[in-house]
Design a protein around this nucleic acid. Structure first.
Lengths: 355, 355
DNA sequence: CATCTGGGTGTAAACGATTACACCACTCCC
DNA sequence: GGGAGTGGTGTAATCGTTTACACCCAGATG
């Protein structure tokens, strides 16, 4: 099998303790001894055994990341943000996906014991209770876009200002003169989707009572996938009177919808205005370029990691925080605010954190 | 600290051995005893300690994935494929990114010792030698799109048929009547980029000697990023005579280039035909939709994981294989093969594995 | 000269699990 | 009734590290 510290010690003619000391740079070692040991290490290609080490030191230098699905640009960006912050502090990242049934998430959670020092959980579908029950309370956890109701205060949490972003986008579309604004919803059980829906409804309500009566009819269901956006686009075209603007609860669905509209020969934004949510990188490269609510995705990951590092540093005795990251309105061609040459009318309207 | 097997044993009034037997379902245990132990486990919320367990059992049920960068859809797709296959077999995935300098990759490699049972390394930039030197030879490794020269036979390897795909695409463009076909190259040190370049050059050469004299002038450098594609697009517009077709060594650069062309009011495909490589999911949603060389990305990850599982099952005593995954030509609107309504002229031309 | 100091080193006990082996109490069978 | 099984359990070694503690041997100090 693999070479262990004992064999190094044997070869160098010293005890394992001394070898350990030169590896970790702890305690005094004579220069000559150090040289001999280093030589043995190199010659034998010795590499310390991570599991053994973390068994005694009680830390792993690894953080776990739990994601509901490894699909799409959103998650890859989050991971990138996390990995970046993690590596900067000498941590490794253990990524695990799960499909949202309770049994599986419990299994994954338990598998983390002894392998990670902390956890970042991104789970818009599963509530914090399930986590609570399956984790030792000594383990630092940061929740990302996860519903925390009531007792969630035992975890740190970061979430995106979904409500505020949706609200702002709908108001923007209305300001452009649209009165029949449709929404392509996200999945029912997803907390992001619910918040965006809430933002949409409240924006319409804030625009006057007569609109308020209309909105249920202008909501079309979707599940965040491009395909569901495509289906929604087709259903939308059959509605009469046809909506003059469509707000998709994420960019993937907006893209699917755009595709459906184009197939039908409907022009965007001339015939129908379109907007999405997330502002994934390709949004700007579509044509017309897609207006969207910008979410600083990678930054979200970075923030989460920073919070986790902080928890780790204070041995989880720190104050728990619930943080909301603001979103930004990005107006491009697809909602017809100006010309539809993508690059010329891009503008960012910063928004506060009111939510 | 966390609750250990000893405390469970104490509470249930049995020895740790019996508790272990209940947990792992090994050996006979009286029904009554089992019940008592299970009760203690539940009450104490006991979860076995992963590191301790893997120290003695000598396996971790975890595979490591090393990626040069966590950026973009390509990598997220690969991870998705790997994770899918891994979970299906009860393995976890430890993802780590690195920036391509040798020191960092060595550090990451060493950190894996004792934490993983096997490794999938995706490293188009770093050669296999460095790996060889920093890994115990008992560790199963699958290389993905990595250069293996000479002695690489000690690792399994999977790679994409870059050469064949590029060759086919250039031939296709030529068949459409283009004679001035430019290439936006990928980074010099990247093995995928090099193979695509080789395919491009050989295709031109195969088309006749007079073309052969031209090609060096029609190569523009890039680095696989959208931004470099954008720059390349601008340089391309200044060339005279202007190329009639552009083949970008990946889709990201094609997108950047498309953007540059559009800014300049140059129509695609009427004025300039455009094609990419990878066929990332958004390719079909651009307008015009992007012709590309399809690479089955997630499948690549899945295959790699399957090979790794096979190696694991045979304790790394299996036969090493070098496999080339075929690519497929996907003709869409951007290269002007027919009309440019995306959905109507999409076609896949299957290709063999000749390379 | 005895004592102290401190650098350099080894011994052995952890860490939290798994598992070979031994043991005991039965039943079964000749 | 004495072995041979067999189901149920405990003891203790083991995995590869780290680290508290003890030890030894200078040289310095009183």
């Amino acid at each position: 099998m693999s070479v262990s510290i004992k064999e190094v010690a044997l070869k160098a003619g010293v005890s394992v303790a001394t070898v350990s000391r030169v590896i970790n740079g702890t305690g005094p070692v004579a220069e000559e001894t150090r040289r001999r040991i280093q030589e043995a290490i190199d010659k034998l290609r010795y590499v310390p055994h991570g599991a053994a080490r973390s068994l005694i030191t009680n830390h792993t230098d690894t953080v776990g990341v739990l994601l509901p699905d490894l699909y799409g640009e959103f998650f890859s960006e989050v991971i990138r943000g996390i990995d970046h912050a993690a590596r900067g502090s000498g941590y490794h990242v253990l990524v695990s996906g799960f499909h949202s049934d309770r049994a599986e998430i419990e299994a994954v959670l338990r598998a983390m014991r002894g392998r990670v020092d902390g956890l970042i959980v991104l789970s818009p579908d599963v509530d914090a209770q399930t986590l609570q029950r399956n984790l030792p309370e000594t383990l630092p956890v940061v929740l990302l876009n996860t519903r925390v109701d009531g007792e969630g205060a035992s975890f740190d949490a970061i979430r995106v200002d979904n409500h505020g972003g949706a609200f702002a986008m709908v108001r923007h579309l209305a300001a452009l003169g649209h009165s029949r604004i449709a929404l392509i919803r996200g999945p029912e059980e997803n907390v992001d989707a619910r918040e965006r829906l809430r933002g949409y409804r409240e924006a319409l309500r804030s625009l006057g009572a007569d609109n308020a009566g209309l909105f249920p009819a202008l909501e079309i269901e979707g599940d965040f996938s491009e395909e569901s956006g495509h289906r929604a686009g087709r259903r939308l075209l059959k509605m009469k009177p046809r909506p003059t603007a469509v707000f998709a609860a994420n960019d993937s669905m907006a893209i699917g919808c755009l595709f459906a509209l184009r197939e039908a020969g409907v022009r965007v934004p001339e015939d129908v205005a379109l907007a999405g949510f997330d502002d994934i990188p390709i949004a700007r490269y579509l044509s017309p370029s897609l207006s969207s609510v910008h979410v600083p995705i990678a930054e979200l990951g970075t923030r989460a990691m920073e919070r986790l590092l902080h928890a780790l540093a204070s041995k989880n005795a720190h104050e728990r925080l619930q943080e909301t990251v603001p979103t930004t309105l990005v107006v491009r061609g697809s909602c017809g605010g100006g010309t539809n040459i993508a690059s010329s009318n891009e503008s960012k309207l910063p928004r506060g954190e009111e939510s």
